[in-house]
Design a protein around this nucleic acid. Structure first.
Lengths: 208, 208
DNA sequence: TCATCCAGTTAACAACTGTTCTCCGGAATT
DNA sequence: AATTCCGGAGAACAGTTGTTAACTGGATGA
């Protein structure tokens, strides 16, 4: 199935990836709306005009970064929510997953948190679409749970949105604690765990 | 107590405010890290160099905007959380307060949501400090509630942070729904209300 | 083998940026 | 009335920006 790329297309994808990587690095200390096209090409070591062979604009590149950051996350979400022994087990696992992902892909997480409400409309839209899909997927998993008895679709969606937003908040807190002492990261994890637990308790007693 | 300003200081504060207003308007469609000093002065109709009489940099102006956006909000928060008849009443009132504030000060809210994780460190810090104060104030009000029996300070703070974050998420959703149909705003309000209610239920059964 | 394609280059463009220094004129102070 | 203060204007600085056009040379396909 995997068709070996010609050496030309391979080279093209290579510099395209180099542009994405350089942009992501530059975006650690600024927002997308101030990212210059020349800035990116200079970091890669390529002529400014080469940029246009890959992206229409920096906004376009931003949309590609959203896909790179969140696109591969869907299966992880599904399996994490599904693998349920106790409810507490699931929460602990989720918080650990978040911490691990932030540690391994901090630049991507920072980009998403930053541009979710950032100054570039198409990028905001792309992120909103991905997060919406996450919420729907979480809802689908929650619906399979026996605890979902008596929950209509709309209520499940409001709950899954709550979970997804909470995940992003937690991720951004881990981000801030990345270069701090390990005890700070532990505090973040502890608080996030209790917050998720409180939400789960609320879910338990929703229909009283 | 209120000392009448000299006509010179009055004029200075007037152009300072004009700079803040113009910047806030420009920031509706871009991030602070891409806001140019000349851009702002041009919008006000003032020489670029005049900017330095009021702010060291655009980052400095951003910090001033944070104070303007959130500084006057503390008393509102306190009274809203305090005025409690039923728990549902309090939630409804809070959601209405948020919707009203977003409608009346959309540019300020957008600025806060955008720059909370934005590319300018001093501004992020200023927002974090203000939101932290909000959380502490909410905690103080929650502590007075008879329902706070058996809650230690740390648990109250994790709860108040949950509330504050939820408020900001709701505000940002209202923002997106501002120019949409009124039914969309109603949907946002309904979901936010139920999410807050679920959290309150979780709070109720926290110690079981 | 030869013609075509196309990722990347080079050069140039007008427009824009933050910052410095010098100056002006009216308010504030003595 | 004379002097100091100071918010704002003006001009100039070296660098930067996005975008255009025409070109090069190696991979591609006939």
């Amino acid at each position: 199935m995997s068709h070996t790329l010609g050496i030309r297309q391979a080279q093209k994808q290579k510099t395209r990836q180099a542009l994405l990587d350089a942009a992501l690095a530059l975006l650690e200390e600024q927002s997308l709306s101030s990212l210059g096209l020349r800035e990116v090409t200079r970091a890669v070591g390529v002529a400014p005009t080469a940029f246009y062979r890959h992206f229409r604009s920096t906004a376009d590149l931003g949309v590609a970064l959203v896909e790179e950051a969140l696109g591969s996350l869907h299966p992880m979400i599904r399996t994490t929510v599904t693998t349920a022994e106790s409810s507490d087990e699931r929460i602990t696992r989720a918080v650990e997953l978040i911490e691990g992902y932030v540690t391994a892909h901090s630049a991507h997480v920072r980009f998403i948190a930053r541009e979710r409400h950032g100054g570039v409309q198409p990028v905001r839209e792309a992120i909103r679409e991905q997060l919406g899909r996450f919420a729907e997927e979480v809802r689908d998993e929650l619906a399979k749970d026996p605890e979902a008895e008596g929950w209509n679709d709309d209520d499940l969606l409001m709950l899954s949105h709550l979970y997804v937003d909470q995940m992003l908040i937690t991720a951004s807190l881990f981000l801030e604690a990345l270069e701090a002492a390990p005890e700070e990261r532990e505090r973040v994890a502890a608080r996030a765990t209790r917050q998720m637990r409180l939400i789960s308790i609320g879910r338990h007693h929703w229909h009283d």
